[in-house]
């Protein structure tokens, strides 16, 4: 397996790790958004969805999978940033970007914002310690689970500061994906001009979609459209 070790240690190998983990995480945020959009279907449906997720025996497998993807994504990014700094030890006095979009220039910082957000989000709506009135799922006495995800969500995002943090983070996520989804296609070898144009558009589309979808929940709660 020396070939794999060598490959994963190379710059392109690390980028492939970033691309694959990014792809997995991208799939997750799509699914996550679709799940959360059920908040518009009412408290019962939403809580039932939460109960289904919480009660799933694969929950921890998924969580470990997600965590390892985040770690792989961050770890490879970290190594690449260090190598990149080494690749240009002396910078320019004057440097202008010729084309690079805002999205690509903010990938690193956006990534850090997202990391902070993930921690907050977990404490806020999963662990509940960053949430004043969080209620954990409990047994419904019938072999199932009773969850209060709807209440937790609505109460949590009724706080304008918390909602604001969610919105900012979703903007960052959208920006990250607008470059990231296209970039991962290229890292995985998609370079045909015809499909590349498609990948570029798809990245923008999904970036906007995720931002819009997730923000709609926060805004709906803030404006009272979704309420207890």
């Amino acid at each position: 397996m020396t070939w794999l070790k060598q490959f994963l240690g190379s710059n392109i190998g690390l980028k492939v790790v970033m691309a694959l983990s990014g792809l997995g995480l991208f799939g997750f945020v799509i699914a996550h958004m679709l799940g959360n959009l059920q908040v518009f279907l009412g408290a019962d449906k939403f809580n039932a969805y939460a109960a289904m997720m919480q009660g799933n025996s694969l929950l921890w497998v998924a969580r470990i999978g997600l965590l390892s993807m985040v770690l792989a994504h961050m770890g490879s990014a970290g190594v690449l940033v260090l190598r990149s700094n080494k690749a240009r030890p002396v910078g320019y006095k004057k440097h202008t970007f010729l084309s690079g979009s805002y999205a690509v220039r903010t990938m690193r910082y956006g990534g850090l914002v997202l990391l902070a957000f993930i921690v907050y989000h977990l404490l806020h709506l999963t662990v509940g310690s960053a949430h004043g009135e969080f209620r954990h799922c409990m047994s419904d006495g019938d072999g199932g689970l009773q969850c209060f995800a709807f209440e937790n969500l609505v109460k949590g995002l009724s706080n304008p500061a918390a909602a604001g943090a969610y919105i900012v983070a979703q903007l960052a996520l959208g920006l990250h994906l607008a470059h990231g989804v296209w970039s991962l296609c290229r890292t995985l070898g998609l370079g045909n001009p015809r499909y590349d144009a498609l990948a570029r558009k798809a990245a923008l589309f999904f970036g906007a979609l995720i931002t819009a979808g997730n923000c709609s929940i926060a805004i709906a709660i803030l404006t009272g459209l979704v309420h207890l």
Binding site: N11, I12, K15, K86, S99, G100, V104, S183
Partner: peptide
């Protein structure tokens, strides 16, 4: 010790 590609796209313009 060259760096990696983040797909900035600067190179192709330069």
């Amino acid at each position: 010790d060259f760096g990696h590609c983040s797909n900035y796209g600067e190179c192709t313009v330069a």
